[in-house]
Write a protein that binds this DNA or RNA. Structure first.
Length: 644
RNA sequence: GGGCCCGUGGCCAAGCUGGAUAAGGCACCGGCCCUCUAAGCCGGUAAUCGAGGGUUCAAAUCCCUCCGGGCCCGCCA
């Protein structure tokens, strides 16, 4: 498929993301790993990279090769013999390898810490805030869509999981060199919006005072029971027609709710670049144009007779999972000419990928939330031509939508848009539930568990601790620090669990402040900062002083950071239920780095080190740790603080 | 009826493209503030990896059957 409309010359509407510094890729761990692969190639005559693993026990080296097991038949030798043969290398050619030991059937490689340490120091010092970046998505426009919450509710904690995942993926893609658009889709034309609007018009305002999304959310719950069916239907019709008082008021209501939701986003460090509204899509002519493409594409048909006479359908019978269904035909457009959900989604993705031209007008979306760059919105007024087609898209949508999402990209494939289909990722995640109920906007089960309320509780808990530790501090400091810690605790606890795992909401788990939790990570960063505040780190130092196991462990971990990020992206794979992306590996890594730093901190005095040389070297090491923690925390969307 | 996800110590949870004694965290028990922030560090108790079969030199990991929890299979949205 040709991605029409895309060219490097055409500057997009997000100037900041397009101005890219040249990316310097440094990856110490990969360099070591490559030498191991090469060395094995020399000794065995084959590529054994698939048999490499990091041993659980550091006694077994830094990288181990299990290939000997698999080659016994072919080589007609015992694994022990094979391992022995493979365990040779040329130290001159492979300076990063210190030694290779055959331990039984395993071939264990030990990193040569002296040059490796040097490599790590140089890499981090040279790249600084960019340490960890990669170039694998350079010149790619990546669109990440999240969390698409209906504008008639505040975010409950399950929505927060979506938002946090999407925002983190967007950050990661930027780190991989991509030009990223963080998109939010707002369905302001749904039945639930009409019901909420009915509530706004016909019900007393709730007693609750505060954020508008909370108010409308409560009104909606009440309206759900009390609303007049025919009146709501009338509103819905007017909304769909557009250009009338009701449609205007609904849009205004939705925008107000969205502004309130964005305050919650801001607490979680979640941000966006572009809002796309259903009410703009509906009046853009997007669907009419998409329809022509669908009709002209292979795979679609419009049966004249039978059950689906008059519909536009696509036959997905070639895909195994659809063969099980009673009917392999998927309706894209109903016999009355109205698109189905799938049909609309196809049209929307035609736009995202640039199959059809951009029909929207854009203007900045004004709100009080502080932003790193302008937030744009589709609108009935404004300027055209601001969207650039995506090369890769991620839709963060719950796992229950897995089949529907698969239907969308398999349909794209069937219609001949194979490249678009291949670059369409449904980033699926399991829902957050209550111990005995689901979150439901309609039933109002979210009340008491909205993200605002959870963060508020977290902030209050953090506040007690911050006050205790900083009795002298002023109220601004206490407020800012407790807010940062409270929100970070919530964000991190959503991020550290694998996406395919359902989370049952429990206060003590989501607000955990000890051990593997955001406050611990932030505390570690503050500790490192505290040392460097008392004495700054030298650019050069005698790092050969740093020979104890705590220091060595830190160098090894610091060198792995860029590889961790790359692996997360490269290991991303599409499953039937959605795309698996293991963001929590980053959380896990940062946690490990913190553990290693705290261990070092407790065993190795820095400011009171025995010698000046030792002090300088340790200060330098602390500075490297602080840098990598800074980069990693930012990537996780946690704000590193100098003092907590 | 077909399909998807989950099931690992009291609780949460990593490992699941098979490989060396089954990570972590919470809770619990014991120790460490004269020393850079004790949200920390050191040590300890605790697991028939849902059950049963099978494949393999080797199974938490692969295959089959079953059990428990969650979810999906419309010209609806």
């Amino acid at each position: 498929m040709q991605l029409s409309g895309w060219s490097k010359e055409r500057k997009g509407w997000l100037p900041q993301t397009l101005i890219r510094k040249p990316i310097i890729v440094t990856n110490p761990w990969e360099q070591f790993r490559n030498q191991v692969i090469e060395a094995l190639h020399v000794s065995s005559g084959r590529d054994l990279s698939q048999y490499l693993e990091i041993p659980a026990d550091p006694q077994h080296g830094d990288l181990a090769c299990t290939a000997a097991f698999h080659l016994t038949q072919e080589l007609k030798k015992s694994p022990v013999e094979i391992a022995k043969e493979f365990a040779v290398f040329d130290p001159v050619k492979f300076p990063l390898i210190q030694q290779v030991v055959a331990q039984g059937p395993y071939v264990n490689f030990y990193v040569n810490i002296i040059p490796y340490r040097r490599l790590v120091v140089d890499a981090i010092q040279k790249t600084g805030d960019s340490y960890g970046t990669s170039d694998i998505f350079v010149d790619k426009h990546v669109v990440v869509e999240y969390p698409a919450v209906n504008p008639n509710n505040p975010l409950h904690i399950g929505h927060a999981r979506n938002a946090v995942l999407g925002d983190t993926v967007a950050r990661l893609m930027k780190t991989m060199g991509a030009d990223v658009t963080r998109m939010d889709y707002i369905n302001d034309l749904g039945l639930q919006i009409a019901v909420a609007y009915w509530g706004l018009k016909h019900l007393e305002p709730p007693k609750y005072k505060g954020k508008y999304d909370q108010i409308i959310g409560r009104l909606y719950v009440e309206a759900q029971e009390k609303h007049d069916e025919s009146q709501v239907r009338k509103y819905l019709k007017l909304m769909e027609q557009g250009d009338n008082k009701v449609a205007k008021e609904v849009r205004t209501m939705s925008e107000r709710v969205l502004r309130a939701q964005q305050k919650t986003h801001a607490l979680l460090n979640v941000s966006h670049d572009l809002l796309v509204w259903e009410s703009n899509i509906a009046h853009s002519g997007l669907f009419a144009e998409a329809l022509e493409k669908m009709l002209g594409a292979p795979g679609t048909s419009k049966p004249k007779t039978g059950e689906k006479a008059g519909c536009i359908i696509v036959d997905l019978g070639i895909y195994e999972e659809f063969q099980q269904l009673t009917d392999t035909d998927k309706v894209l457009v109903r016999s009355d000419g109205v698109a189905t959900y799938t049909g609309k989604d196809i049209a929307f993705h035609f736009w995202k990928f640039g199959v059809i031209k951009d029909p929207f007008l854009y203007k900045p979306f004004k709100s009080r939330v502080k932003r790193d760059q302008t937030l744009w919105t589709t609108s009935h007024t404004g300027d055209p031509g601001r969207y650039r087609p995506a090369h890769i898209i991620f839709n963060v949508i719950g796992m229950p939508q897995g089949l529907a999402q698969r239907t969308v990209y398999l349909t794209l494939e069937t219609l001949g848009y194979t490249e678009a289909a291949a670059n369409y990722y449904h980033l699926a995640y399991e829902f957050v539930t209550l111990p005995d109920a689901k979150f439901s906007g309609r039933k109002g089960t979210w009340i008491g568990f909205s993200t605002d309320e959870v963060i508020k509780e977290a902030t209050q808990r953090a506040r007690k601790e911050v006050k205790k530790r900083n009795p002298e501090a002023d109220s601004t400091f206490i407020r800012e620090v407790s807010e940062a810690i409270g929100s970070a605790a919530v964000r991190y606890s959503l991020l550290k669990i694998a996406v395919e795992k359902q989370i049952v909401f429990k206060w003590d788990e989501i607000l955990s402040f000890d051990g593997n939790a955001a406050p611990y990570l932030m505390y570690t960063y503050a500790r490192a900062s505290s040392i460097l505040r008392k004495e700054s780190a030298p650019k050069k130092a005698r790092i050969s002083e740093l020979v104890n196991p705590y220091e060595t462990e830190l160098f090894k971990l610091l060198g792995r950071y860029p590889a961790i990020l790359r692996e997360i992206v490269q290991d991303m794979r599409r499953e039937k239920w959605g795309t698996r992306i293991e963001l929590f590996h980053l959380a896990e890594y940062i946690y490990e780095l913190c553990v290693a730093f705290n261990t070092f901190y407790n065993h190795c005095p820095v400011l009171t080190a025995d010698t000046q040389e030792m002090k300088g070297a340790r200060l330098l090491l602390v500075n490297l740790c602080r840098q990598v923690l800074n980069n990693g925390l930012h990537l996780l969307g946690l704000t590193p603080l100098e003092r907590i």
